[in-house]
């Protein structure tokens, strides 16, 4: 199944929750979705035998001037097709439903996105920092991040 067919089928079921399809070769074509319906859409993508997306290849965060974005790369090992989902949230309230209960691999990916971008995944069972120390302040991969002057008495800048 190609991206356009997947988009049409999703549009039939979820109506306005599927915003648009961006087809811009040679980059991967992707589907923008609203954050509120994300969990249901992902569950449909996994459990509907026509889609059969059993593998979350990658979950990544993106920092834009006013928004934060989460990108999901999905793949079906049986059907051999793939799809990219994107969900955009405002920086003031960056809450995205967790897909950890759908694909277990999302567990650590979501913790990493939380650690470095500050995206809050609602429904995650253990949303704590994964790479940085637990008492770290700020989200380092945001463009407006300023590195701390000291950490536990150690000077950080060169």
């Amino acid at each position: 199944m190609n991206t356009t067919e997947i988009f049409e089928l999703l549009r039939e079921k979820f109506k306005d929750a599927i915003i648009d399809l961006v087809d811009n070769p040679p980059s991967d074509s992707f589907i923008n979705v609203v954050p509120e319906k994300l969990f249901d859409i992902c569950l449909e993508l996994r459990d509907n035998p026509e889609f059969d997306f059993d593998y979350l290849m990658c979950l990544s965060g993106v920092d834009f001037p006013t928004n934060l974005q989460v990108v999901y790369h999905l793949y079906s090992l049986n059907k051999k097709h793939k799809i990219v989902l994107k969900v955009t949230v405002p920086k003031e309230n960056p809450k995205v439903p967790s897909v950890e209960r759908i694909w277990r691999s999302a567990d650590w990916h979501e913790r990493e996105a939380y650690d470095l971008f500050g995206i809050i995944f609602e429904g995650h069972h253990n949303l704590i920092r994964i790479l940085l120390p637990y008492d770290w302040e700020g989200y380092p991969l945001r463009k407006d991040y300023k590195e701390p002057e000291t950490y536990h008495g150690m000077r950080v800048p060169y």
Binding site: L132, P140, Y145, E147, P148, M154, R155, V156, P157, Y158
Partner: peptide
């Protein structure tokens, strides 16, 4: 020795173990 390639943007790197 000195932080190496992380000397400028390495917010998480100690710039030389001789600091501790």
């Amino acid at each position: 020795n000195s932080g190496g390639p992380y000397w400028q943007y390495g917010y998480h790197v100690l710039k030389g173990v001789d600091r501790i």
